[in-house]
């Protein structure tokens, strides 16, 4: 029976990781930007929800969603246009983007700390109680996280495959210059991609903060996890990230259960290194 518990734990880990990683991989795949402030964007989502909810407004999380999505979208778009895009014209701009976003992370984390204090902030849980099926008990909160993140992924795929912006994003990812030639505003698509990824990770932040809380320095954990999963799945491959997230989630649960939680980190990096040694592009990544 324990195995079922562990598998459930792995599934929940996986859905959480999927949500974290997909934005990172999208941006890297489309515009080769590696966003070091990704973890801080996650925290931004959490703090945004915390602030909105602290007004005790009507609608609870629905209102949070209505307000946070445009706010995150705008934030991501502005950040890309104002500080990332100008770097593209320089040589070795990829390093410079990493440095820039590292600075942004430092700035954001400490702004959070000064504004909200160092202490952990908690958000009300979305749903209480738990579901009991025979010997297996799953909290509704976990089920909600699983359902919402999986449907978030589907919604995201739908946007990519069925909207003009989504198709343009795919075109730019495949061939930036070609896309520009056929009249797709490449730079705007870069920014749009960045904005979409900000929304994804910000929503992840909201969803997970009601379980894990929100604190100013937590972003680094998120960044590293997302990074490992993205690389494992193949940078730029959304499907790869999805598989990777669930594989890593399961791995974490099983290693933690069988060998102890200290070994989880070793196992994650071990599997990643082994994979990269055999397939340098990750599970489903393409070179480029």
């Amino acid at each position: 029976m324990e195995v079922i518990d562990v598998i459930i734990s792995g599934m929940i880990n996986g859905s959480v990781y999927a949500l974290m990683a997909v934005g990172l991989t999208l941006v890297y795949g489309v515009s080769k930007v590696f966003n070091f402030a990704y973890g801080s964007f996650y925290s931004l989502g959490g703090y945004l929800a915390f602030s909105i909810l602290s007004f005790k407004i009507f609608g609870g999380y629905v209102t949070v969603l209505v307000l946070a999505v445009p706010a995150l979208l705008l934030f991501g778009y502005v950040v890309e246009r104002a500080i990332v895009a100008p770097l593209r014209r320089w040589s070795s701009w990829e390093v410079k983007v990493m440095m820039l976003t590292l600075g942004l992370a430092l700035l954001m984390d400490n702004l959070f700390q000064i504004t909200y204090g160092a202490r952990v902030k908690s958000l009300p849980v979305i749903v209480e109680g738990s579901l009991t099926v025979g010997p297996v008990i799953v909290s509704w909160q976990d089920i909600a996280i699983f359902v919402l993140s999986v449907s978030g992924m589907f919604a995201f795929r739908w946007v990519l495959n069925n909207t003009w912006v989504g198709l343009a994003v795919q075109a730019v990812a495949q061939n930036p210059n070609g896309a520009q030639i056929v009249g797709i505003p490449r730079d705007k698509i870069f920014a749009a991609t960045f904005a979409i990824s900000t929304v994804m990770v910000g929503l992840g932040g909201i969803l997970l903060s009601q379980k894990y809380f929100v604190s100013p320095n937590q972003g680094w954990d998120i960044l590293v996890k997302a990074w490992v999963i993205t690389a494992f799945g193949g940078m730029g491959s959304i499907r790869g990230s999805l598989y990777a997230a669930f594989i890593m989630g399961m791995l974490e649960a099983f290693v933690g259960w069988m060998f102890g939680l200290t070994w989880v980190q070793f196992a994650l990096f071990g599997v990643l290194l082994a994979t990269l040694a055999i397939r340098p592009q990750g599970l489903m990544g393409k070179w480029g």
């Binding site: 324990e2 518990d5 562990v6 459930i8 734990s9 792995g10 929940i12 880990n13 379980k211 894990y212 954990d221 974490e252 649960a253 099983f254 290693v255 933690g256 259960w257 102890g260 939680l261 200290t262 989880v264 980190q265």
Partner: peptide, 19 residues
């Protein structure tokens, strides 16, 4: 069990504990 800071998913340990 020695656990690293940042552990927030306790499923595996709790499974063992419940047993």
């Amino acid at each position: 069990e020695k656990v690293p800071y940042g552990t927030r998913e306790w499923g595996p340990i709790l499974t063992t504990i419940r047993k």
